[in-house]
Amino acid sequence: MLNRLTQNLDFQTEALTLRAERQRLIASNIANADTPGYVAREMDFSQALREATGSLAAGGAARMQTTQTGHIQPMAGSLGGPVGLKYAAAAQTNLDRNSVDMDRERASFAENSVKYEATLRFINGSVRSMLDAMKSPSQG
């Protein structure tokens, strides 16, 4: 019964964790903007969220699969890769083979911060509605 109260928050919690993860990823890219040979990473957020919330069909393309005898069975709940991390393609070539596009990283960083804050507000909103629902009318 009690888990019904927090069930609504599970989705937002997963989203918040993934937003923080993406923030860390973009911070890594920005930190390595001047490192020769560094390859920028990016996260497919919607796919990562679908994997995290389990709404991606089991055995889908992103899941680990055993296609040959001798493959080790994946553990329950394991995913195909680390939360859908990919390598970002460079918009412009660089002499030192660094593929960080600072304009894009800054834009992603700003976008991700705003969406992180939005998710926080959604959580706060859900908490407020739950508290409102628990209050008796006389309490106002």
Binding site: A31, A33, M102, S113, L120, I123, N124, L131
Partner: peptide
């Protein structure tokens, strides 16, 4: 410029963390 970029990243992370710490308190 790179120095400034990284400082800004830290500032943003700091303000986001502060808001996270206040989660559920403003209700």
């Amino acid at each position: 410029r790179s120095y400034q970029n990284n400082i800004e990243v830290m500032n943003t992370a700091k303000s986001l963390l502060q808001k996270t710490l206040q989660m559920g308190q403003g209700v």
